[in-house]
Amino acid sequence: MLKIEIEEAASKQWQPKIVAFFCNWCTYTAADLAGVSRIKHAPNIRVIRVMCSGRVDPQFILDSFAKGADGVLIGGCHPGDCHYQEGNYKFLRRFQMLRRVVDSLGIEKDRLRLEWISASEGDKVRIVVNDMVAKIKALGPLGLPVKYKEWANEMNVLESEIAGKEEVYA
């Protein structure tokens, strides 16, 4: 196989998984509209429906990363359009703060994304999802569960050493 073929095969094996939190009134409805309009897009997002982007707890985002998400996408109503008046602003503020933390802790910016998608913007769902998938494919897997396992291995070395010593003592 040519190198490019190998890369392609590898990239086919690994598909990024994106956890998305969509607000019921705008972005979730837009994602439904994309469906009704048969607007095809990458199959990599898994949507969790919340009533408002204001419900999205930064813990959910971190937890998604830690449990294996390659990206997290949050979709809410455009500023001024929140079904609950201002929930999206409250999320925006959290997001701006969380982004700094996530950045400091070494997760690439493109893996965490906030988009305002109104109920009528079915096509924007396609654009955002495809763009995010492309960017994450370029970054490769985040794979935190695998990393945590690898990190834990440094302790196994000692355990086997101790076991070895104890055998000698015995």
């Binding site: 930064p58 813990q59 602003y89 925006l92 959290r94």
Partner: peptide, 28 residues
């Protein structure tokens, strides 16, 4: 709470009064 930092961050940032990204960033 699973993550103390995320929770205080969520609370404090939610109570920032600014509304635009730029103004929010200035406060943060």
């Amino acid at each position: 709470v699973k993550d103390q930092g995320a929770k205080i961050l969520s609370s404090i940032a939610s109570n920032v009064s600014a509304k635009t990204e730029k103004e929010i960033d200035a406060v943060l």
